[in-house]
């Protein structure tokens, strides 16, 4: 059971976003980079599968130099191999280019299952997994909260509005992982020490037949902070909660026409 896990390195979710000088990116100085939270579920699932069934977990990332830290974290948690496709520029996620690069890097590596996050936190696209599956001609199940892998096939539960779809698919396949699938582990000290000795394979984008930035599928014209919201109408309700409640309902009914 060989698993490939695609991990993206993203700004910590608590980061205060500042806009970069060019107006088309964010200011990356002093950002703490983390493994995208949904990719942690993907990694954990792959680790549990290979622990139960044997085989190896290979983590792959396409990103700038700092992304190596994310791979080291994955190795520390137990991944067997790490592949860093080195990308000079950071971007807000040209999903199709990323998928093309990942597809080229993955296609000749043995795999029964490819695992991605349900979305990359930051780009908030939720696209790379499905695109990668299509480019590799693999079936996929997205937004998975339950997974059972058998001989040559999988059964996955995927969240949809008001319900769950139970999907069966032959292997090799790709899944994108949602919260609820498992509880990601922390790296133990032993793992962190061992990870320092594990190699990270470096791959140049050009060697995958993709020329960086030459043929984009996504153009970011501008990035801005959301317009500041006007201060709301705040009612002090400590002394007369019933009066405040009545006033609020009146405002919602007559002012906002929301109820």
């Amino acid at each position: 059971m060989n698993c490939i896990v695609c991990v993206a390195s993203v700004p910590d979710t608590a980061t205060v976003i500042k806009i970069g000088a060019d107006g088309t990116s964010i200011d990356e100085t002093s950002i703490k980079w983390i493994i995208s939270p949904y990719d942690e579920y993907a990694l954990e699932e792959a680790l549990q599968l290979t622990e139960a069934k044997g085989g190896e977990v290979t983590v792959v990332t396409f990103g700038p130099a700092h992304a190596e830290a994310t791979l080291r974290e994955c190795l520390a948690r137990g991944a067997h191999q790490a592949v860093h496709i080195v990308n000079g520029a950071t971007s807000l996620g040209d999903s199709f280019t990323i998928a093309k690069v990942l597809a080229a890097a993955i296609k000749d590596r043995p795999h029964d299952l490819i695992l991605c996050g349900f979305k990359g936190v930051g780009t908030d696209n939720g696209q790379v997994g499905q695109m990668l599956a299509e480019l590799l001609d693999r079936p996929h199940v997205a937004n998975v909260t339950q997974l059972e892998v058998g001989e040559g096939s999988l059964t996955a539960g995927r969240e949809v509005e008001g319900g769950q779809e139970v999907v069966e698919s032959p292997l090799p396949a790709l899944v994108t992982c949602q919260k609820g699938l498992n509880e990601p582990r922390y790296a133990a000290l032993k793992g962190i020490m061992a990870a320092k000795r594990k190699p990270v394979e470096k791959v140049e984008v050009a060697s995958l037949g993709v020329e960086e930035g030459a043929d984009p599928f996504y153009a970011v014209r501008a990035v801005a902070l959301p317009p500041a919201k006007e201060a709301g109408t705040i009612i002090q309700g400590e002394d007369d909660p019933a009066g405040a409640a009545a006033q609020l309902v009146k405002l919602l009914r007559e002012g906002a026409k929301a109820i």
Binding site: I17, I19, L92, D124, V220, V223, L225, P226
Partner: peptide, 14 residues
Amino acid sequence: PVYSGKALATVDTA
């Protein structure tokens, strides 16, 4: 919205 709504991007398909 990008970065969980902390910023808004203006984009196109290049």
